[in-house]
Design a binder for these strands. Structure first.
Lengths: 340, 340
DNA sequence: CTGAAAGCGCTTACAG
DNA sequence: CTGAAAGCGCTTACAG
């Protein structure tokens, strides 16, 4: 009942040619006469032949697989990037092997990726331990960290200019006249949160200010909500808050409006980071910084493919410019328009 | 420089055992003496041996690969399901091969999945043409349609009870006293949209009503926004609208509140379907129907694995119960509480 | 351009 | 329990 798959030998037999000829017919760029090709294709079609990619991978040493490692998809920045990454890799003829990591799971997952002979790895998840990065490097499998970097790691990385983007947000808030500006961090050990905080503090300093208060949301809604409650139930409340990403900023806005009955931006300004689709929706209209995810994806794929084809694993760190998007969640400096 | 990978033969040489013994050591359930196992593991560790999953797939005929076909991730129901599906499949020892389809692309994508010898296919994307379904069936690769079904197809499917969920929404709106109830459809040829419309109309009929007006949003924000504008700029406006999924409902709410200055639910009730995370956020607080995505995922995996292991491809259609979630976007019948 | 043959790295009967 | 050997379905030098 279970139909055994058709092989190139079956096709060869029917077409009365050698198995090599069948293989060549299905190898782009191999030399086959038009006549031979025609006969082979006819036989292949008759039998419903489909080349076995696993066998091809085995003999050629090229699996055509790229591993994509993601931690969670709650923050909509990742689904968007995941879709773009998959499409870009598929367009280059690669297949995507998707791995969702759980905490403490990364080691096992990387082992599996390597067992499947992936030709490259994109990590859009937490931090890559330096041990794993080394192991990948030893195996000769290029790794690109997406939207994160590890200073001590030999892996390439693609990020946006988080420092500069956050600096512009600081300028915006300071110029709008805010005097008690708070920050809610993401994960303390993530490069994004650290860079955004550093850029933001730098921007404030340039305007003669310092952080008024600080909370930690760990890139989770509940974490951000708790941090917001703490900051805004203090005796001296912030008059503006920069939340390390949009995903948390929405939770903060919900707490401020729903629980604390504050108006945004009349009573308090809120700004985020990423410009995920929801930031442009009417319910939030969040002033934020656009991370150019498509450009980041393009850079990721370019670096990865270069390292695969050139067989060198050089460390490259691409930092792409990002762009302030002014909507309605933050008070504006005099004379500045908004969009959105 | 490029380090050639370590094979079981290398390990065998170092451990002074046969290559078979090395293979057995890494095959769960194979018979190896503790002593032998120890020697092999020591040698393997020394060399950094890692079994080649591609070679294993080749010889065993089991690739360990499941293909996941997704059309777009804009609607957050899919990222959530994708994450759950991946985790569930990984937990069962399978790897996920992800394919993002583009319109008209499905044929090519299915060919690639089959070339990679996937053991099963989950389609969470558009509709599966009956031709492709047949081809998969002929190849003996089980297919499960996720959140959709094709009446004429031999493929198994997992959906929630869209008819019943929509029926309950109709009752809710009718009992709240609405008299001009509209519907905004998704894709006209999708089973979800058709079933939700059928259930909704049935529910209305049970309350002595019929659809007051109807638009089509094609499951896209812009489509839904355009449909909303059309319905609510008519001389006789609806006093309630059921939007075929949450993703479109958010866009409809944005138009109603932002452009048409209508209050929700005071001026108009809006209900959706799916209960994606954003439906619970303060900016929308959407009354909707929860699709039990985790249960749907569990059923999908169960059906798939059963068909893989039993090597039979029987058509199964799982329909899971769903649940009304009352929040603040719709007026309530007298005496009914809300949550969320 | 074409075919015979080697070989990718494993699993798995088959003997012992 | 252990080893020798066959073979999964291909690609790719190597001759002709």
């Amino acid at each position: 009942m279970q139909k055994v798959s058709v092989t190139s030998a079956d096709v060869a037999r029917l077409a009365k040619v050698s198995q090599s000829a069948v293989s060549r017919t299905f190898s782009p760029g191999a030399s086959v006469s038009p006549k031979m090709r025609e006969r082979v294709l006819a036989a292949a079609k008759e039998l419903g032949y489909r080349p076995n990619a696993i066998a091809r991978a085995m003999i050629s040493g090229r699996s055509g697989l790229i591993a994509l490692l993601v931690a969670y998809l709650d923050n909509n920045f990742y689904p968007v990037a995941l879709e773009q990454l998959s499409r870009a890799l598929q367009a280059h003829g690669y297949q995507v092997l998707l791995f969702m990591t759980a905490p403490g799971d990364q080691d096992r997952v990387v082992q599996q990726m390597l067992e499947y002979q992936v030709e490259g790895i994109v990590m859009a998840s937490a931090t890559l331990s330096s041990g794993l990065a080394r192991e990948c490097a030893e195996t000769g499998v290029p790794v690109v960290l997406f939207n994160r970097y590890v200073p001590s790691s030999p892996s390439s990385s693609v990020t946006s200019d988080n420092i500069e983007g956050a600096r512009q947000l600081a300028h915006l808030l300071a110029e709008a006249g805010h005097k008690r500006i708070a920050f809610i961090a993401g994960l303390e050990d993530s490069s994004t949160s650290r860079d955004r905080e550093a850029g933001f503090c730098k921007g404030l300093a340039e305007k003669g200010q310092a952080l008024f208060a600080r909370g930690v949301g760990s890139y989770r809604r509940e974490g951000a909500a708790a941090a917001a409650r703490q900051l805004f139930r203090a005796k001296e409340k912030p008059d503006a808050v920069f939340v390390a990403n949009d995903h948390m900023a929405f939770a903060v806005m919900d707490v401020l409006r729903g629980e604390l009955k504050l108006r945004i931006p009349e009573d308090v300004s809120v700004v985020g980071y990423d410009d995920v689709p929801e930031a442009g929706w009417g319910g939030y209209a969040l002033t934020t910084v656009t991370q150019p995810s498509q450009e980041m994806v393009d850079a990721t794929v370019e670096i990865l493919l270069e390292q695969i084809t050139r067989r060198v694993v050089l460390r490259r760190a691409a930092v792409l410019p990002c762009r302030l998007v002014v909507r309605n969640s933050a008070r504006l400096p005099k004379g500045m328009g908004r969009r959105g």
